[in-house]
């Protein structure tokens, strides 16, 4: 069945100063999908994600998210738009001066007039959902890296977002914790049908959770498709990235030197 398109971007270019990070990127995400943007470090994945939530402005191209042209929104409209989305940052980005519970309560207190009695139940149950029940009175620096990420996920979920964005959800986690986070992501989608865009370079995680994968190399989308399609992709760089072939392009080439100087 065809679902409505919730994110569409065309001809996106972005950069910092003289450096171009993304050029001519097109993408489309449909409601209920989990789309993974995959690529090596420094390929522009995080920039693309920041463009989609309006944290950066593109140099060229248009982005429509949930029916709104992100580029044309003023700050108040952006704030209203962002209350419909959630984002998990790479290192959690919890406010260090607030307890974990207050971090989760923050969007509820700021964006909606939710009664405190409701907030305490919502916060505790969201924490339980990510396996952090009982951590509400801890400060972020008392949590491990994985716990911070999970608390960040709980905070992103707290307003029941229609769209959820993840920046490297599993990076720096041990395989067991990473798999647990993948399961949580799939659980959330199964239960709520939330559309998700995940940026990662973790192949195992991408192959587990994705409906569709976009491979971003050198600032352009080189391949996209289902997990099976990406695994079967013939593009040598994509193939090298998804690990079917040893990354031979980066090494080798020393033989002539050895021949010239060794006898």
């Amino acid at each position: 069945m065809e679902h409505e398109v919730v994110i569409s971007a065309s001809g996106l270019s972005a950069g910092y100063g003289a450096r171009t990070v993304l050029h001519d990127v097109d993408l489309e995400v449909r409601r209920g999908e989990i789309v993974t943007i995959m690529g090596p470090s420094g390929c522009g994945k995080t920039t693309l994600l920041r463009l989609l939530v309006g944290l950066e402005r593109p140099r060229a191209g248009g982005i429509t998210v949930l029916g709104q042209q992100i580029g044309g929104l003023d700050e108040d409209d952006l704030d209203r738009f962002r209350r419909r989305i959630g984002m998990c940052f790479q290192f959690g980005a919890l406010l260090n001066s607030l307890t974990v519970g207050d971090n989760l309560a923050l969007p509820l207190r700021e964006a909606r007039s939710v009664p405190e009695a409701v907030i305490s139940v919502v916060v505790r149950s969201r924490l339980a959902q990510v396996g952090l029940y009982g951590s509400e009175s801890k400060l972020p620096n008392e949590l491990s890296g994985g716990m911070k990420k999970r608390a960040g996920l709980a905070r992103a979920l707290v307003l029941d977002p229609e769209l959820l964005f993840f920046d490297e959800p599993t990076s720096g986690l041990d395989p067991v914790t990473a798999a647990g986070l993948d399961r949580t992501i799939l659980d959330v989608r199964r239960r709520t049908g939330t559309t998700m865009v995940v940026v990662t370079h973790d192949l195992a995680s991408a192959f587990t959770i994705s409906d569709r994968i976009l491979v971003l190399l050198d600032g352009t989308i080189r391949a996209q498709g289902s997990v099976a399609e990406i695994e079967a992709c013939r593009d040598p760089d994509v193939a090298a990235f998804v690990g079917r072939r040893a990354a031979a392009a980066e090494t080798g080439g020393g033989a002539p030197f050895v021949a010239a100087h060794f006898s």
Partner: peptide
């Protein structure tokens, strides 16, 4: 630098 400001923005908080 620790993305906390961006996190506020994404939560729709000025």
């Amino acid at each position: 630098v620790s993305d906390e400001i961006d996190a506020l923005r994404v939560m729709g908080i000025n």
